[in-house]
């Protein structure tokens, strides 16, 4: 466990909490893509099946359970509790465009051809693209609430910190996981454009709106 990994996990957790607090306080999930949140719930579900098969550490188990619970509460808030505020019209990304290639790729390129390993691989590939419906929604409406941009910032920061973690682990432990690293790089690239807007607009007190 290194500092990048801990900070990465903390910003991941922080992102999910920010989103939940935003929805809970405003009693609205306007501007949030329900599809992205369903994908994240699917990511955690397929990745953390090893909760039943292998024990890694108390930290690992507790964080996995928290992530799963947060993801499902978020989906519940969007589709059940505050469904009237959900902007279904603009959340129009076609999920099959992500799910079909990701499923195919996880069968083709994995560490071993076993059900758990294929599901883990599926979750890694899916996570790298799961934010696309949310980014698509923002590009469609042309704006995002400031708190939503904080959520996205911490979600992107988490993946960027994991990249630092992998570089660290490669040098100190000679550990690397090619599937995770390649997907992590792809995932981080998706956030670059957003990071630029976040720094140039949101941090200067302006609302994120696209021209």
């Amino acid at each position: 466990m290194n500092i990048f990994r801990i900070l990465g996990d903390v910003s991941h957790l922080l992102a999910m909490i920010i989103l939940l607090v935003k929805i809970w306080r405003s009693k609205s999930c306007a501007g949030i893509s329900g599809k992205s949140q369903i994908l994240f719930a699917l990511v955690f579900t397929t990745r953390y099946l090893d909760l039943f098969t292998i024990f890694i550490s108390v930290y690992n188990t507790v964080m996995k359970v928290i992530f799963l619970v947060c993801a499902y509460i978020t989906v519940y808030m969007i589709y059940m509790k505050f469904h009237k505020t959900f902007d279904r019209e603009h959340d129009s990304f076609r999920l099959e465009f992500l799910l079909v290639p990701v499923t195919g790729l996880s069968f083709l390129e994995n560490h071993s051809f076993t059900p758990l390993e294929i599901l883990w691989t599926f979750s890694i590939y899916l996570e790298s693209v799961a934010i696309l419906p949310q980014l698509f929604m923002i590009s469609k409406t042309g704006e995002a609430e400031t708190i939503t941009t904080h959520y996205l910032f911490f979600l992107g920061l988490y993946r960027a910190l994991y990249l630092a973690n992998w570089i660290w682990r490669y040098h100190t432990e000679n550990f690397y996981d090619q599937i995770a690293v390649v997907s992590g790089v792809v995932q981080t690239i998706f956030y670059c454009d957003f990071f630029y807007l976040y720094v140039t607009k949101v941090l200067k007190g302006k609302k994120l709106s696209l021209p």
């Binding site: 990745r47 000679n174 995770a180």
Partner: peptide, 10 residues
């Protein structure tokens, strides 16, 4: 080396 025995990252 690549690991295939469990994934310790979240």
């Amino acid at each position: 080396q690549e690991t295939t025995e469990g994934h310790d990252e979240l």
